[in-house]
Simulated assay, not measured.
Amino acid sequence: MPIVTVQQFPRSLEHKRELARRITEAFADVYGMPDDSVQVFFNEVDGENWAKGGVMGCDRPQAGRN
């Protein structure tokens, strides 16, 4: 049973639903397994809990969060 973990900034429920659907579909197609055997976990991290280049995300300009 595949377990997929997605780490990302917070996103809307609609986006997470669509991503979960597409990830599930891809695993089911490639591995030839039923959809309900695929689990997707979303781990959402805000800017106070990550850093890039030694700078906390909350201290970075909005455009620099990629």
Rank of each mutant, 00 (worst) to 15 (best):
M1D: 13
M1S: 13
I3E: 09
I3Y: 12
I3R: 10
V4R: 03
V4I: 15
V6Y: 10
V6G: 14
V6D: 14
Q7L: 09
Q7P: 02
Q8K: 10
Q8I: 07
Q8W: 14
Q8A: 14
F9M: 08
F9P: 04
F9C: 02
F9S: 10
F9G: 08
P10V: 04
P10M: 03
P10C: 01
P10Q: 03
P10R: 04
R11Q: 05
S12H: 00
S12T: 12
L13C: 01
L13W: 01
H15P: 01
K16H: 05
K16G: 07
E18R: 11
E18H: 12
E18S: 13
E18D: 15
E18M: 09
L19Y: 06
A20E: 14
R22V: 07
R22Q: 14
I23K: 06
I23D: 05
I23F: 05
I23C: 08
T24Q: 03
T24D: 04
E25H: 13
E25Q: 13
A26F: 06
A26V: 10
F27V: 15
A28S: 15
A28D: 04
A28Q: 05
D29G: 11
D29M: 12
D29P: 07
D29R: 15
V30C: 12
Y31P: 10
Y31T: 15
M33S: 14
M33A: 15
P34T: 12
P34G: 14
P34C: 13
D35W: 09
D35T: 14
D35S: 14
D36R: 15
D36P: 09
S37M: 09
S37K: 11
S37R: 13
V38I: 15
V38M: 12
V38L: 11
Q39R: 14
V40K: 03
V40R: 05
F41V: 12
F41A: 05
F42L: 01
N43K: 10
N43Y: 07
E44G: 08
E44Y: 06
E44P: 06
V45I: 15
V45E: 09
V45Y: 08
D46I: 04
G47I: 00
G47W: 00
G47L: 01
G47Q: 01
E48A: 12
E48L: 03
N49F: 07
N49W: 02
N49Q: 08
W50D: 03
W50Y: 15
W50S: 03
A51I: 00
A51D: 02
A51V: 01
K52M: 04
K52T: 00
K52A: 01
G53F: 01
G53Y: 02
G53I: 03
G54R: 00
V55T: 12
M56D: 04
M56N: 07
G57R: 00
G57N: 04
C58M: 08
C58R: 11
D59S: 05
D59P: 01
D59V: 00
D59Q: 04
R60P: 03
R60L: 11
R60M: 10
R60V: 01
P61R: 08
Q62P: 13
Q62G: 03
Q62N: 05
Q62L: 08
A63H: 11
A63P: 04
G64T: 02
N66T: 10
N66I: 13
N66Q: 14
